[in-house]
Design a protein around this nucleic acid. Structure first.
Length: 220
DNA sequence: ACCCAGGGTCATA
DNA sequence: TATGACCATGGG
């Protein structure tokens, strides 16, 4: 590959600087945000989080004290509000049954990942968001932007599966939480800054000349 | 009016 | 294992 993953990281870091990710007041809020943001803009999730905070403290016991209707009402701006209400309630029950944050923090990363994936509504990316940004584990988060960027750079084929791409990152980078947190944040920022649908040209982007990887041509 | 967003589940072949 | 339908709101 022309670029190593570290090259890409250095370029992004030099271009944008360090990012403050994930915005949240607590690890539990990170988890809630991770579940809500599935296939949805963060601005929508902020509205839902505000609705929740206006009713209760953002902790599992308080969330479970809300009726189904009330919770759905709060989550409405987040989209898929019925699905996400179910997922969030399942998560809260599971979280408490596992002894909360301190109980879960005792598990090794692989074990924690496995039990996370058993929760309704948590797939690989959401699990890895939670592992990396709430539990501070060295797990690389793969999303659509990550896949498109690497496909655009010719490093991977667009249809590489999640686990293969994750292991590509984790086996070619130092296993450092801070690095993983920054890298993922920078990839998302870069995609939004330069590779938007309406501005396919990005002369300031040295990494990908004429970069335009928001379209579907690199999805397959 | 259309497109899509920081995915996941389930049914089908 | 892989593809497709479905979930739903809000911003461009």
């Amino acid at each position: 590959m022309a670029y190593t993953l570290l090259d890409i990281y250095q370029y992004l870091l030099n271009s944008y600087g360090r990012q403050a990710w994930w915005p949240a007041d607590s690890p539990f809020e990170v988890m809630v945000g991770a579940m809500l943001t599935q296939n949805t803009r963060w601005s929508n999730i902020e509205k839902a989080l505000d609705n929740l905070k206006q009713k209760v403290n953002l902790d599992p016991v308080s969330l479970l004290s809300l009726s189904q209707e009330t919770l759905e009402g709060c989550l409405k701006p987040a989209g898929y509000f019925r699905v996400k209400t179910q997922s969030l309630q399942s998560y809260c029950h599971w979280y408490l049954s596992q002894g909360g944050f301190s109980g879960l923090q005792k598990l090794k990363t692989q074990a924690l990942r496995n039990v996370l994936l058993e929760v309704r509504g948590i797939g690989p990316e959401t699990a890895d968001d939670i592992l990396l940004y709430a539990f501070a584990r060295p797990v690389f988060v793969i999303d659509a932007y990550t896949r498109r960027l690497l496909a655009r750079l010719g490093i991977i084929k667009g249809n590489i599966n999640y686990e293969d791409l994750r292991s590509l990152f984790e086996s070619n980078l130092p296993k450092r939480v801070d690095l993983y947190q920054q890298f993922h944040a920078l990839i998302v920022l870069h995609a939004k800054q330069h590779c938007w649908k309406n501005k396919p040209d990005c002369e300031t982007c040295v990494l990908v000349k004429g970069c335009f990887y928001s379209g579907s041509s690199y999805d397959s």
